[in-house]
């Protein structure tokens, strides 16, 4: 596992984080390619099922990036997303996945630097945590089969 490269899924709100990612690009700020971005119309469009399924399908870390407090394009979608993330964190603990592997971040469309920094920080954090226990179990199962 010394060559571990985490797979991180970032659900990014179209109105803020996704645009911030664009901004990071135009500013030529680099961020790790481990982060796979999925654009969503609002952070609250991300269902608990999407978050859980991401881990089931092999993500080592997942985060949701929504607008700053009070800035949601749809009133309070970002706050709902935050409570959903908190709810799923508990579920992850229950099924044996460290809850730190899931996070909620808030940023505005202009925060290209923060976007890149968040992607770096999250990648580093997950790198430290190592592969998700699900991926470890899958690898073990494969090894046994072989």
């Amino acid at each position: 596992m010394e060559n571990f490269e985490p797979v991180i899924v970032a659900f990014c709100c179209h109105y803020c984080a996704y645009t911030a990612a664009d901004m990071a690009g135009t500013q030529r700020l680099t961020y790790p390619s481990n982060v796979k971005i999925i654009r969503v119309p609002c952070s609250c469009k991300v269902d608990a099922l999407h978050l859980v399924k991401a881990f089931e399908k092999g993500a080592d870390g997942v985060y949701v990036a929504g607008c700053l407090k009070g800035d949601c394009h749809f009133n309070n979608g970002n706050d709902r997303a935050a409570s959903r993330v908190a709810y799923v964190k508990k579920y992850l603990e229950e099924l044996g996945i460290e809850s730190e592997r899931l996070a909620m971040f808030r940023m505005s469309a202009g925060m290209g630097f923060q976007f890149a920094q968040t992607a770096k920080d999250m990648t580093e954090k997950i790198r430290e945590l190592g592969p998700s226990p699900i991926n470890v179990a899958k690898a073990q199962l494969k090894g046994e089969a072989a």
């Binding site: 099922l49 859980v52 399924k53 089931e56 579920y91 229950e94 099924l95 044996g96 699900i134």
Partner: peptide, 8 residues
């Protein structure tokens, strides 16, 4: 999904 992962 949770059961899959926990049992795995």
């Amino acid at each position: 999904s949770g059961l899959h992962m926990a049992l795995l």
